[in-house]
Design a protein around this nucleic acid. Structure first.
Length: 492
RNA sequence: GCGGCUAUAGUCUACCGGUAGGAUAUGAGCUUCCCAAGCUUAAGAACCGGGUUCAAUUCCCGGUAGCCGCACCA
């Protein structure tokens, strides 16, 4: 059985995630996070906030999801997020009409498609192109848009569910700039849902139609592409993939060899690297792939993707893009509003570096990388989550329910919860079984109340990874747990 | 969307043209119970629709979802 199949089974039975609207049969590309999964997801999002917002002094906002059409016309999503497609009249196989036309006409004559559907139809008719599968005839070319369309209010104004959070950050930029210091660089990010109406989503969480993104937009003066704090990270080593070759490089080498367009992007490559490491990813199975010129999206002057090796193959989980002034200029043009800023005596449109990541794919990668098989030490499968990502910080178990142990344990649970610690309390089943349950969802610590507790107010703390225990005073539990979480400690 | 395979308790699975047996998980109880012990007990299942048939969970068709391959993946 593939690891992702095993993970999927565990996800169903352990409440990590499951198909949405199950009684109705589910629809591909939509998943619900269960009670355990949602705790992990929130911890991932909060770790991102910690590292990419708070520690950097950046801004977080929450833009609306429903987006009027003009915004997405400006961003290019209405035009380029749609693909021209032809469908075979016999077997219904779809093919990219522009790709066909390029192959048989434009590339041959060294031309580019003019963007008109009629041109594609003309070429397909002229070259007598037929379905590669069944030799059936193609119907007329049409645009297939990957956005979910809707309409606003009584006038039914055309709108879409946003395909990325970034555009809301761009349209908020002028106000953010005025309200928060009128200084560059300035950075703002969002955590939120985005939507893409994938033709055929597969591979579980790795390609969803409704998904959560964490995107940071860093606005800067293009004449000043240095970043404060780079010195501190310059020696950090990262795996880089260029033209199919993987090499380890320091951040400084990435800048010096012009692997990344500038120091700013490189700084965030390091931050992304640190983020993944903290979240429990096996960094030997991760690399940054430097995109070739021909692969770059329409808005980009340099892209470096994070890819994580999984049982599905390599998954792209972070997109780092130098978007230049593409978006702000496009919104200025579309809206007719001036979005330029006065900075150091000049009037400029800031450039943007973006680090965009999907939470759901990342969540899946963490599950795969932290999964541990049965072994000599443990007779059950478990998850080696870092304490800061684990769904609960600690499990509290009374050795038995009776003789006042249950009450004592509930008291301790209440105390810990009031101190902000996530506690999973269980009193049924043998103690060994409860330890196994806790391991299975990756809880790093277990506190056990036994008969000695009643005498001297001490409990045992068990560490997940080696199963070893020590006795500590109840009064010191909060402090000990917090310290262990901070240090990422998982063994005695 | 196409082709191949698949669909039985929460999970894994057995058998069968006459509606299902197990494992494991779950609830309750007993056992001073520290690494899935044991015992008692409770609850729990044939994806949806249509067809063939006296009778369909079983055979056939369609839908849906999953896996593999193709295409698609800002």
């Amino acid at each position: 059985m593939n690891l992702h199949e095993r993970i999927y089974e565990l996800a169903l039975s352990r409440s990590f995630f499951f198909p949405s609207n199950e009684p109705y049969g589910g629809v591909a590309g939509f998943y619900d996070y269960g009670p355990v999964g949602v705790l992990i997801k929130h911890k991932i999002e909060n770790l991102w906030r910690e590292m990419f917002i708070k520690q950097e002094g950046f801004l977080e906002l929450e833009a609306s999801i429903i987006t009027p059409e003009p915004v997405l016309v400006a961003s290019g999503h209405v035009g380029t997020f749609a693909d021209p497609v032809v469908e075979c009249t016999k077997c219904k196989t779809r093919a990219r009409a522009d790709h066909l036309a390029e192959e048989h006409h434009y590339n041959v004559h060294n031309q580019k498609w003019d963007g008109k559907l009629e041109s594609l139809d003309a070429i397909i008719a002229e070259k007598k192109l037929v379905c590669p599968k069944c030799k059936g005839e193609f119907g007329k070319a049409f645009m297939f848009n990957l956005m979910f369309a809707t309409a606003i209010g009584g006038e039914r104004a055309m709108a879409y569910a946003r395909p990325e959070t970034a555009q809301g950050t761009f349209t908020a930029f002028p106000r953010l700039f005025r309200n928060h210091g009128t200084k560059l660089p300035m950075a703002a990010g969002q955590v939120g849902r985005s939507f893409r109406n994938e033709i055929s989503p597969r591979k579980g969480l790795s390609r969803m139609r409704e998904f959560t993104q964490m995107e940071l937009e860093y606005f800067f003066d293009p004449n000043q592409d240095k970043i404060e704090g780079f010195e501190k990270v310059s020696k950090t080593k990262m795996n880089m993939m260029m033209g199919g070759e993987k090499t380890e490089m320091t951040a400084k080498e990435v800048v010096d060899n012009k692997v990344a367009p500038n120091e700013i992007m490189t700084y965030f490559l390091v931050r992304g690297w640190e983020f993944y490491k903290k979240a429990g990813i096996d960094m030997s199975r991760v690399y940054y792939r430097v995109l070739e010129q021909a692969e770059l999206p329409h808005y980009s002057k340099g892209n470096i993707d994070m890819e994580v090796e999984t049982s599905y193959g390599a998954l792209e989980t972070i997109g780092n893009a130098y978007r230049t002034d593409f978006d702000l200029s496009a919104h200025a043009k579309q809206s007719g509003k001036d979005v330029s800023v006065h900075w150091e005596g000049r009037k400029i449109i800031p450039h943007v570096f973006e680090i965009a990541m999907g939470v759901d794919r990342f969540f899946f990668c963490i599950l795969e990388h932290c999964f541990r098989e049965k072994s000599a030490e443990k007779d059950w499968e478990w998850f080696d989550f870092p304490p800061c990502i684990a769904p609960y910080h600690v499990a509290v178990f009374p050795l038995m329910k009776k003789d006042g142990l249950g009450e004592k344990a509930e008291e301790l649970t209440k105390m810990l919860r009031e101190n902000g610690i996530d506690v999973d309390y269980r009193e049924s089943g043998s103690i060994g079984r409860r330890y196994a349950r806790a391991d299975e969802i990756g809880i790093p610590y277990a506190l056990t109340i036994d008969y000695d507790t009643l005498k001297d107010d001490t409990v045992t703390i068990r560490y997940r990874n080696d199963g070893k225990q020590e006795r500590i005073k109840i009064s010191e539990c909060t402090k000990a747990i917090n310290e262990n979480i901070r240090n990422g400690r998982v063994t005695l």
